[in-house]
């Protein structure tokens, strides 16, 4: 079976995405059958095929919305992840910082995003930056917490061993502490990606023209169930894509197998 190994590995890499798509398709099919079988009224739950049809009727509108919301999430998530990892490491090294700044972070996270969102839009206007800031706000915290946790999960005996070989603090960080923290960080990234997407959608409820949040709002206003579900479905696809991308990155980066392997 040695020859099958690389193929299996390559397949393993796209497996999360494939799995997501298959599961989504199966759920949609099940719902379709349920709606037909129990004769559920369309304004309670529309048939998934009607939802798909609505998307296909105006594909450009849904594509633009997904691109826009995806971009907002990506920008905010990228910044949040980098900042979270960086500050998490800083917290683990500097006790003073941890004791002064960390409580502020915790307080910041108790503010509901919907309240915070209004503020952000007043500060940054109706720009993509405003949405990215909201996404950032939702993503950096779980990453910070898990990065800190990961940094502390290091076995002190291993640190001492490396030190006995004459390794510097920097080398210990690069070769031991950071790699040990990585699986923890990836757990947080998965959580943060879903949170960030929600943040981007909510951020669009403050006077924007494109995005899944806007389509959702328009659907809700007219009580158009099909339109509401169409934007939910697009959000789900986007969420699965983000989740899968992180899984893929994790497989590559944490190749030795971390928590979730």
């Amino acid at each position: 079976m040695a020859g099958a190994q690389p193929v299996a590995r390559r397949f393993g890499a796209v497996l999360p995405l494939l799995k997501g798509v298959v599961v989504l398709a199966a759920v949609l099919l099940a719902v379709e059958l349920l709606v037909i079988a129990f004769d559920i009224r369309p304004y309670v739950l529309p048939r998934p095929s009607a939802v798909l049809e609505a998307i296909l009727r105006t594909p450009a509108a849904y594509r633009d919305a997904m691109v826009r919301t995806g971009l907002e999430t990506l920008l905010g998530f990228g910044a949040g992840a980098l900042f979270g990892i960086w500050i998490g490491i800083a917290f683990s090294r500097l006790r003073f910082l941890r004791e002064t700044i960390f409580p502020i972070f915790i307080v910041s996270q108790t503010i509901p995003v919907i309240a915070f969102g209004a503020l952000v839009v007043m500060w940054f206007g109706n720009t993509i930056l405003a949405k990215a800031v909201i996404v950032f706000y939702l993503t950096f915290f779980p990453v910070t917490v898990n990065a800190l946790l990961g940094m502390r999960a290091v076995d002190e005996k291993q640190v001492q061993l490396l030190r006995s070989f004459g390794a510097s603090d920097r080398e210990i960080m690069r070769k031991l502490r950071f790699p040990t923290a990585l699986p923890h960080i990836f757990v947080a990234l998965r959580i943060a990606s879903a949170l960030g997407l929600a943040g981007a959608v909510v951020g669009e409820w403050f006077g924007d023209t494109t995005g899944l949040g806007v389509l959702l709002l328009q659907g809700m206003y007219a009580e158009n169930m099909v339109a509401i579900w169409a934007s939910i479905l697009c959000s789900a696809v986007l969420g699965v894509a983000f989740f899968a991308a992180i899984g893929l990155a994790e497989k590559r980066i944490v190749f030795w197998g971390g928590e979730s392997a």
Partner: peptide, 18 residues
């Protein structure tokens, strides 16, 4: 033409010159 939204108060935006 700028669209509104559920959390925007048009009077405030006009009053501030936005």
């Amino acid at each position: 033409i700028n669209p509104g939204g559920p959390n925007l108060l048009t009077e405030n935006l006009v009053a501030t010159g936005a």
